[in-house]
Simulated assay, not measured.
Amino acid sequence: RRVREYVADSPFEYQKNCLLYLPKDLKKCRRGSQEEAEMIAGHIHSLICSTYGHTLVLFTSYHLMGNVYQMLRDEIPFPMIEVWRHSTEEITRFKQMDNAVLFAAGSCWEGVDFPGDMVSSLIIVKLPFAVPDPISEAQKKEYANLKDYIQAVIVPDMQKKLRQGFGRALRTETDTCVVSILDERAGEGGRYHEEVMCALPSCKMAKDIKDVQHFIRNRKGVEYYL
């Protein structure tokens, strides 16, 4: 029997409707430090105000999420919701608000639908590298060295989850969204910049917060700000 194959183009106009923001002024901080949490909180605050709420913030660490949430809970002029272990009630509450901010981790990286202006700003705090476990430790022994293992297993796994998280941004053909990655390893010259760019569709790029503000102002109507 013959097998016919067909590859369809994506219906989403990423170049027109999506802006990928990789801040130029990200500092390299010690993982888990107070300095790291404060830096991330500062960037998130600027982005939320620039897009007038309508924000989903995806974390890879519940600990970091909790710290940043506490820093911003009294500083943001929009409703803020924190989701622990995929709470359906909290996600539903977020969807019922017009310009809220949702802090999430875990399973919220995939399978959650936020169409329209509900999420016009998607913030990915850290690249979603998997946490080592006994299976990955055993798998590592199959490779000659650590570098080969990272390139063959760790990076492709990160790219897959990054694409899943990115998919929360545009859910319909008319959606418009800013996607920000606050991991210095993803920025130009960063260790995993090329891998990030290969994983995501081609979008307009930005390094300055003013470009984010300009993008939102030019693609959202008056009702978006009400």
Rank of each mutant, 00 (worst) to 15 (best):
I181T: 13
I135S: 09
G189Q: 04
G106N: 14
A206Q: 08
A104F: 02
K160A: 13
I123R: 07
D157N: 15
R185P: 03
L170N: 05
I123V: 15
I181K: 11
E195F: 07
T172K: 13
E142N: 12
Q151H: 15
W109F: 06
K161G: 02
K126Q: 13
E194G: 08
G116Y: 02
V153W: 01
S180E: 03
R191C: 03
A130M: 13
D117E: 12
P201L: 03
K204S: 11
D148Q: 14
L146G: 03
D211I: 08
E110N: 08
Q139S: 09
V155E: 05
G116S: 04
V155R: 08
I209A: 11
D208N: 15
H193K: 06
M197E: 09
L200S: 06
E184G: 02
P156A: 13
E110P: 04
Q139F: 08
Y149M: 06
L127S: 02
V112F: 10
F166M: 07
V112M: 07
S120A: 14
A130F: 09
R191Q: 13
K210H: 14
A144S: 11
L127I: 07
K140H: 05
I150C: 09
F129I: 05
V178R: 09
C198P: 00
D133Q: 01
V131L: 11
K207C: 06
I135P: 00
K147A: 12
S180C: 10
S120C: 11
A186G: 10
C198D: 08
Y143S: 02
V196R: 01
A152W: 00
E142Y: 12
W109E: 00
A152G: 02
D183L: 12
K141Q: 15
